[in-house]
Amino acid sequence: MKNRNHVGSRKAIKYRLFLYVLPCIAIVFIFSYLPLWGWSFAFFRYKPGKSVWDCAFVGWSNFKDLFGNAVLRRNLLRVLRNTFGIHFLGYVFSPLPMLFAVLLCEVRSKKFQKIVQTVTTLPNFISWVIMFSLSVTIFGANGLVNTALQEIGAGTINILNTDKHVWLTQVLLQQWKSLGWSAIIYFAAIAGLDQELYEAAMVDGAGRWSRIWYITIPQLIPTYFVLLIMSIGNFLNTGVDQYLAFGNAMNMDHIEVLDLYVYNLGIGSGQISYSVAAGMMKSLVAIVLFAGANFVSKKVRGTSVF
């Protein structure tokens, strides 16, 4: 259509456009696809400081060790348990942003809505290092909570340096950080709902709770499910920031997730080959999970992510 005046040069434009975007594709290739050569380390017994070609080729034995060697297997199962545990505990809280948005939209004062939104979104923008620093300030040995407890003679509580309730603590911290941010999408969805439905319901005498329960929530459920499915599809990719910041010798048993394990194994203890093998399996499982989630989400809402 656009090139109707230049029918002859249409083909040229086709390739010229590609040429323009090629540098960007090259950057993506260099930083996202080129690192794949590093996977070859998983098939060698790599010793730091040597070239990979000077190391012994061991085939699949690193992968077999991850499952076969008693210590490595125990660690792998432990970090998988933690990854699953923290995620599934997170799902328990997953309806919270929706409820938060629904309730806040029922409040009449727009100004109050705005203030709550602004303040609750702020924690989303701070790093996990800051989160840790704030947590130490509030829950640390000389922190706010403990000094207050001591004052009333109730002893002290130790939240950060303990192996108890680690998953719950981490999930609650995630909730504090992300609640307001996750609610934004529901605010936008609620703003787009058809007002006539509400008016009709009010004529029929529906009260506040029945309007929420029978009109608002059912229309938000598809959004909720799509977000849930996508988060399931993405759940191996936890990142390390939070767990690196909050991890310590006391809670490592329950806080070490797969990503942190890969990091500790490779950078911490120099087991490059095992670390790459574990990371490689993670990447492959993650892409399968993602494809599955994408497929389900396509069924739910009719369009895929691509």
Binding site: D259, V262, I267, S275, G279, S283, I287
Partner: peptide, 21 residues
């Protein structure tokens, strides 16, 4: 090309390969 780029959101070679790269 677009898909090739978008896939990298969900798929990465991993931390150590990125480091080596």
């Amino acid at each position: 090309w677009y898909r090739l780029v978008v896939v990298t959101m969900y798929f990465s070679a991993g931390m150590i390969p990125a480091y080596l790269n």
